[in-house]
């Protein structure tokens, strides 16, 4: 059952990065769109996201629930050390979720619409950024278990650094890229496709630059990222495949294909996530001057994992057909079960 639970944890995390990520990305893109294209894009974003919006963010809840019931110390140590960025991320989640809905359901269209949009855009950026910061902080290894240190060392230093920020930036870029590739496939008008093509292009460039910046920032913070990659050829391979699949993605995108580019963009996110997991395997949260927290050394007693695993298995037997039906009903085509939904 341990492995079942781990599998679900990984899967939920991946799904959140893909679906939630594209969802955040759509908000980020709005910040970089001209007014006219924005109105079009906004409608499309809405149509693409709305029916499945509720389902998207439940992946995050699943991650949280699996962590606190299956690997409680990972949940509690992160909650303590990263209290501040987590709170800020939550603020973003609340604002973007509410304002996305308000914007659509407000019965009267007036100036308030612009405010909803502005808050939706800002909170989309903020949420992605802090999500990245949290991921970065988990790897950097400045989280400390000691209680005899200063406030700054315990609650600020773990995440307020170049490396975590660069990961935050990277998250924003790649989410925007995901969304652009996804939304491009949604649009029927040629002109709008063009707009999203440019957005995808710019987001792709930004992602590559931000990716480079992650390495520089790691260096600045004395974190031997390159060394880790060299020592974990599999992780390195993931990153290389992710990069090499880019030309293929662009080629197929230019041919006007819809499915393959989306799959490839999703694959890239998955590979990067995998690389992150592999290079620090088995550690999940690096701890300063201490053994890191792994799934193995934080696991809950077998009885807990076993009921958790069963709940997840039975739950998915109920959920998967329903989810499939949902996606089918709105697309009429099962292949659309991909990023952005």
């Amino acid at each position: 059952m341990f492995y079942v639970v781990v599998l679900f944890l990984g899967l939920s995390l991946l799904m959140y990065c893909l679906f939630g990520g594209a969802d955040f990305g759509a908000g980020i893109l709005e910040a970089f769109t001209t007014k006219h294209a924005r109105e079009k894009g906004e409608k499309m974003t809405y149509q693409a996201i709305a029916p499945v919006w509720e389902a998207n963010h439940i992946w995050l809840i699943l991650v949280v629930v699996i962590l606190f019931s299956g690997f409680p110390r990972i949940y509690t140590e992160i909650s303590v050390a990263l209290h501040i960025p987590l709170t800020l991320m939550l603020l973003g989640i609340v604002l973007r979720g509410c304002f996305f809905t308000f914007r659509h359901y407000d019965a009267i269209q007036d100036r308030s619409h612009d405010y909803y949009s502005r808050i939706f855009v800002f909170s989309s950026i903020g949420t992605s950024f802090f999500l990245g910061i949290i991921a970065g902080a988990m790897s950097l290894g400045r989280i400390t278990l000691a209680s005899n240190v200063t406030f700054a060392e315990r609650f600020v230093a773990p995440w307020l650094n170049y490396f975590s920020f660069s990961v935050g930036l990277f998250a924003c870029c790649i989410f925007a890229f995901l969304a652009a590739v996804y939304l491009m496939g949604e649009s029927e008008e040629k002109r709008i496709r063009k707009v999203f093509w440019w957005q995808a292009f710019r987001a792709n460039l930004a992602t590559v630059v931000a990716g480079g910046f992650v390495f520089v920032a790691a260096k600045l913070d004395g974190f031997d990222l390159i060394g880790l990659l060299v020592n974990h050829p599999l992780g390195m391979a993931c990153l290389i495949i992710a990069t090499l699949s880019l030309p293929l993605l662009w080629y197929s995108l230019n041919l006007g294909w819809v499915i393959l580019p989306r799959l490839l963009a999703g694959l890239q996110v998955m590979l990067i996530l995998m690389a992150w997991v592999i290079i620090q395997y088995p550690v999940v949260v690096q701890i300063a001057g201490n053994q890191g927290l792994t799934l193995e050394n934080t696991r809950a007693p077998e009885a807990s994992l076993s009921v958790l695993g069963w709940a997840l298995l039975v739950g998915s037997a109920l959920i998967l057909p329903a989810l499939f039906y949902l996606l089918r009903s709105f697309k009429g085509h099962p292949w659309h079960a991909e990023p952005g939904h």
Binding site: A50, P51, V52, W53, E54, A55, I58, I61, L62, V65, I66, F68, S69, G70, P72, Y75, T76, A300, P301, S304, V307, L308, A311, L312, V314, G315, L318, I319, A322, L323, Y325, L326, S329, F330
Partner: peptide, 26 residues
């Protein structure tokens, strides 16, 4: 967490179904 994780994981399942059904309904 490990003791009352079970109701929470069932709750997660219920939310999921609820969210899907809501999408279909709305």
């Amino acid at each position: 967490g490990p003791i009352i994780g079970m109701p929470f994981s069932w709750e997660g399942t219920a939310f999921f179904i609820e969210a899907i059904a809501l999408g279909l309904f709305l």
